[in-house]
Structure formats: C-alpha cells, structure tokens
Simulated scan of single mutants.
Amino acid sequence: MDDLFPDSLVSPPLALAPGAVLLPGQALAQQDAIWQALDQVLQQAPLRHMQTPGGHTMSVAMSNCGQLGWISDQHGYRYSAKDPVSGLPWPELPPILAELASTWAGAAGFDGFHSNACLINCYAPGSRMSLHQDRDERDFSQPIVTLSLGLPARFMQGGGQRQSAHQKITLRHGDVLVFGGPARLCFHGIMPLADGWHPLLGSRRISLTFRCA
C-alpha cells in the first residue's frame, strides 16, 4: 500500500519470524476509544524527553501508564512505580487498552498476556529509536505488544545480536506488532520518521508498547 494512504487495512496475521507476528489494522475499529483513553493518560502524565545514562536527550518523547513505567536518567534504564516528574504513581492503564493488548497477544499465539506497563513513545519527523533489546523486564516468557498510531514508520526487526541482519517492515496506523518466544530478545528499532500528516495525530507517530514488567 502506498504511504499516501497511512491507515492499514485489516488483514490476516503475518508471521515475520518465529515468535514475531504483525496484525495489520487490528486497532482501526477501536481507534476513537483508544485515542480518548490515551489522551486522558497524557493529560495526567505529559510526554517528555528523557535523558540517557550517558547524558544525551532522547529524540523520542515518552510517558507511561500502568503499575510500572519505564524511565531513563543518569542512573540507568529501569522501571519505576512513580512518575519522576510529578512524584505520583503513573496513571492507571485504561481497561480498554489492557483488554485489547491481551486480545492482540492471543491472536498472535500468546494467550494469558496481562500487561502491567504501557510505554508511550511519540515520534516527530526525524526522531528514531536505535537497535536495542527489551531486557529490563523480569519475565521474558511474556511477549511485547506494540500498537502504532499516526504516521507510518519503518520498523527494523533483527536477531539475537546487534550486528545480525534485519528486515524492515512498515508499521501503519492501526497495526499491532507482537513479538515473544524466540523473537522476545531480538534487536529492533525505528528508522528516522519521515515527514507526513495523519488525520488523527498530525505530523506525529505514537506507539503504545504493552509489557509485563
């Protein structure tokens, strides 16, 4: 599909690698309810650019909801029960998002997934996420479930080593990507976001990443 048409069409699950499944357009039917729930979360815990342990400012703006939130600062990468900006617990994970994440995980072959942390990443044109592994969670038997909203992004799906060959997959508005099992510790990232405009989010892409931390 041409990227002039930024929304996915609902289509059958697509296996990208053992344990990695793309669910094209799975969230389109619920996009209004999802955005309403997300907007309420961001009013309580606004997006912010965190610092890496090395002192660099991340190009992606972030927030969290759920029992735990992922944070980065001079002390390292970790999960915290409180928002370091407000000192308050992170906003509750909206029930509709928790239920959808569990449903999407089941559709990809991972039944019984219950997220206690949702990372919210906001990309502007030019922002990116370098290749990395998600290793800060305690239970690697649980998958990662990611929902894409807004502008399309080029996702890099690699292997167990940073230098492993990787494939590039376009993630569009409404797509859900699930990776667990053999793919749980794969290196992955997002290439610099291209300019564009989406009717819901304008010149932004937001990803919701559900995890069992």
Results as ranks from 00 to 15, higher is better:
179 F>M: 11
92 E>T: 13
196 G>I: 03
57 T>N: 07
183 A>Y: 06
71 I>R: 07
205 R>M: 07
88 L>I: 03
141 S>E: 13
92 E>P: 04
1 M>N: 12
87 G>Y: 12
43 Q>F: 09
118 C>Y: 08
166 H>T: 00
71 I>V: 15
85 V>C: 10
169 I>W: 06
195 D>F: 12
25 G>H: 08
185 L>W: 06
23 L>V: 05
14 L>Q: 15
107 A>T: 01
46 P>G: 09
138 R>H: 14
109 G>A: 02
182 P>Q: 09
42 L>A: 01
47 L>K: 07
156 M>N: 04
4 L>P: 05
60 V>A: 06
183 A>V: 05
29 A>G: 12
68 L>A: 09
43 Q>T: 09
97 L>A: 02
157 Q>Y: 11
99 E>T: 11
173 H>M: 08
24 P>K: 10
39 D>M: 09
184 R>P: 02
52 T>E: 01
39 D>G: 13
28 L>S: 03
167 Q>A: 12
7 D>G: 03
80 S>D: 15
31 Q>S: 12
100 L>E: 03
199 P>A: 10
212 C>N: 11
10 V>E: 15
14 L>M: 14
140 F>P: 03
2 D>R: 15
191 M>K: 15
200 L>W: 13
157 Q>F: 14
173 H>N: 12
59 S>M: 11
48 R>H: 14
56 H>Y: 15
28 L>K: 09
188 H>Y: 09
11 S>L: 11
3 D>P: 13
2 D>M: 13
50 M>R: 08
60 V>K: 09
197 W>R: 13
126 G>V: 08
211 R>S: 06
156 M>W: 03
211 R>T: 02
155 F>G: 10
41 V>Q: 00
156 M>L: 14
143 P>H: 01
49 H>C: 11
197 W>Y: 14
77 Y>E: 05
92 E>M: 13
90 W>R: 04
49 H>L: 09
